[in-house]
Amino acid sequence: MTDLIQQLINGLLIGGLYALVALGISLVFGLTGMVNFAHGEVVMLGGYLTFTLTQSFGMPFLGSLVGSLLAGGLLGFAMDRTTFRYTRGTPMNGLVISLGLIMIFQSLAMTIWGTEPLTMDVLFPGAFQQWGLSLSIQKAITLVVTAVLIAGFGLFLVKSRAGRALRALAQEPEAAVYVGIPVERYIALSMVIGTALAAAAGAMFAALFSITPFVGTSLTAKGFIVVALGGMGSAAGTIAGGLLLGVMEALGAGYISAAFTDAYGLLLFLLVLSFKPAGLFGVSGRVKL
């Protein structure tokens, strides 16, 4: 029982990070119909930036996390303005561009940080011990930061004027234009928010696991699985999908053989896409393409 609870906690931890990564993919897909394969590369770059800021410049972890978050947002803005905005009418071209961006970002990371996996020094030694369960302080911080970011994003989406505009755009793009919502500006904003959250997730990934220039693509794949599970373009579904995938993976790694771990997620993804395209929690109806 203790073991199960321990696995659940680990699953929620990873799942929360998956959700942070997937929110950006889902948000941009909901507004533009474009799938950004380079999204995971922002996670990777955020992780490396945090690594450099803490290890080489001695910044506190939370400081470098915020630094990565801001840099990630900036990168998202740059990507959108220099490339993606030319592909609004043709989401497929946006996808192809994002494939080109992956090559650029990976080479950049290889040139700066090399191809060997980098592991950060333990920033917060020690762990909470209670009822036979253990939670390292680093993991506790990750859980809290993830929760704060997700809650903050939720509040922004529900309460703020910009958040309402984003939801209006995702629901009825034409009607949103009629009531005077500047579409381009909000698409750029969604890209900025998405990449900022992804870079923050990268910062926490780097502190928990080792990081290589190639982690981005597998994280993008996880993001797709999460978005497909939760229903494309649905924020609440994405968060639930992230937690579900994290818990499933943790239980799978704990209780089932791990040779084809990645394949299980992909298979689930394929089946959901073809038989339940609105996502497991999605409302009935076709995906907007």
Binding site: M34, M92, F224, D262, L267, L273, P277, L289
Partner: peptide, 17 residues
């Protein structure tokens, strides 16, 4: 069963598997 971008995503999963 998939169309457009979803077809690309699905074949991505197929290729990886």
């Amino acid at each position: 069963r998939m169309e457009g971008i979803v077809f690309s995503l699905g074949t991505y999963a197929v290729g990886e598997m």
